[in-house]
Amino acid sequence: MLERIVVDEAVWELRPDFAVLVMTAKGLENGPSDERSEGWLAQAALKAGDDPHVESWRQAYRAFGAKPQRTRPSVDALLRRAGALPSINRVVDAYNAVSVEYALPIGGEDLDAYQGPARLVRATGDEPFDVIAGGEPAVEHPVAGEVVWRDDAGVTCRRWNWRQCVRTRLTEDTVNGIFLLERLEPYALDRLAEAGDELAARLRAISPGARIETRLIGRP
């Protein structure tokens, strides 16, 4: 899976400074949030602060036509809620806490729900994106030119890292996960690697037998 993940050239043309650290974790033992995972969220809230990386993401959103005040980059939205971060489940709590501590967009999804490899592209506008609307399953579509993560079945995350689909969401029953840690300049690659190491350590704390692999993807 890791070697088949690609970033389309149209995305590189938009932001040649983009890089993503992709992590797979197999053999997860997820479950409801507990004292430890909630403690990670509380600790992250104490470390939250302004970071130039957030503004880089706002600029990237504007570059493909999104309004970051209305649909915020994931790290921007989390930092604004840092004092009251919701607990979801142990694994989601882990990556949300690292996202806030490192001012870094991180997405986590169920690897087994993927159909084909993940790829970052600019949307045509006809790709399906499954959501829950009014309590019922629904299908939306991205705007043409929008940056999206997708697989063979459709969009897995809209507006780069704004909103994940229902199909691949990481639940308490997830056994194999994939995590996307995304950076733009001026965010240092060393800091990105440190964030990845911290996430891997927390996943191993939750699941001592987890098998973790990573791959850094940057512009060739």
Rank of each mutant, 00 (worst) to 15 (best):
L181G: 01
P73K: 01
A66L: 09
D76N: 05
Y187E: 06
T124Q: 01
D126E: 11
G31S: 09
N89V: 03
P186K: 12
F179G: 01
N176F: 12
V175H: 07
S207A: 13
P32V: 13
E182F: 05
P86Q: 08
V92I: 13
S74M: 05
Y102K: 00
A201Q: 10
R163Q: 13
D76I: 08
D152M: 10
D190E: 15
T168W: 02
V75H: 02
E101A: 09
R204W: 15
E13C: 03
E35Q: 08
N30D: 10
F179T: 08
E136P: 05
R70F: 15
L180C: 00
T156G: 04
L85D: 03
A63G: 06
A82Q: 10
E146I: 04
G145P: 00
E29F: 09
G218H: 08
A10S: 15
V100W: 00
A94N: 01
Q69V: 04
R81C: 06
V98M: 10
A195T: 12
A200I: 04
V20E: 06
N176Q: 07
I212Q: 13
A113R: 06
D93H: 04
A45C: 14
E3G: 02
L189D: 11
V148R: 00
G27A: 14
I217K: 04
R167C: 11
G27V: 02
V92G: 05
A97I: 03
T168N: 09
S37E: 01
R159S: 15
K67N: 15
A63E: 09
D197R: 15
V75Y: 04
E109I: 10
E140G: 04
S99T: 08
R163E: 06
E35F: 08
V98A: 05
A210M: 02
T174K: 09
R163M: 14
V121N: 05
I217M: 03
L41T: 00
V166S: 13
E35S: 11
L120I: 01
D151H: 12
R204P: 04
D34H: 13
P208G: 14
P68V: 13
